[in-house]
Simulated scan of single mutants.
Amino acid sequence: MTHYPPTVPVDRPVVGSYQTYEGAQRAVDFLSDSRFPVERTAIIGSDLRMVETVLGRLTRGRAALAGAGSGAWFGLLIGLLLSLFAAGNHHALVLMLSGLLYGAVFGALFGFVGHALSGGRRDFSSRSQIVAARYDVVADSEVAEDAKNMLIKLGWREG
Rank of each mutant, 00 (worst) to 15 (best):
T2W: 05
T2K: 09
Y4P: 02
P5L: 14
V10Y: 02
V10C: 01
V10A: 14
D11I: 06
R12H: 11
R12S: 05
V15C: 09
V15P: 01
S17K: 02
Q19W: 07
Q19L: 14
Q19V: 14
Y21E: 13
Y21M: 11
E22G: 11
G23A: 15
A24L: 10
A24F: 09
R26P: 01
R26C: 05
A27M: 11
A27H: 05
L31N: 12
L31E: 03
S32A: 15
S32M: 11
R35S: 12
R35V: 04
P37S: 09
P37K: 10
P37L: 05
E39W: 09
R40G: 13
T41A: 10
A42G: 12
A42T: 12
I44T: 08
G45W: 03
G45H: 07
S46D: 06
D47H: 12
M50Y: 02
V51H: 09
V54G: 03
L55R: 15
L55N: 12
L55T: 15
L58W: 10
R60W: 07
G61K: 09
A63S: 15
A63H: 01
A63G: 03
A66G: 14
A66E: 06
G67H: 00
G67Q: 00
G67E: 00
G67T: 00
A68F: 00
A68L: 02
G69Y: 08
G69E: 06
S70A: 09
S70H: 09
A72C: 14
W73A: 14
G75S: 06
G75R: 03
G79V: 08
G79F: 07
L80E: 11
L80S: 12
S83R: 08
L84M: 13
A86T: 07
A86V: 05
G88I: 02
N89E: 12
H91D: 15
H91C: 02
L93I: 13
V94I: 13
L95I: 07
S98H: 03
S98M: 09
L100D: 01
G103Q: 00
G103F: 00
V105D: 03
G107A: 05
A108I: 10
A108R: 06
A108K: 04
G111S: 09
F112V: 01
V113G: 03
V113N: 04
H115K: 14
H115V: 01
L117P: 01
G119K: 07
G120Y: 05
R121K: 12
D123V: 07
S126D: 08
S126V: 07
R127H: 11
R127N: 11
R127C: 05
S128P: 01
S128G: 06
V131F: 03
A132R: 04
A133T: 10
A133C: 03
R134S: 13
V137S: 02
V138M: 08
A139N: 07
A139R: 04
D140G: 03
S141K: 10
S141N: 07
V143S: 11
V143R: 05
E145I: 01
E145S: 11
D146P: 00
K148D: 04
M150N: 01
L151W: 01
K153D: 15
K153C: 02
G155N: 14
G155S: 14
G155T: 08
W156K: 05
G159F: 06
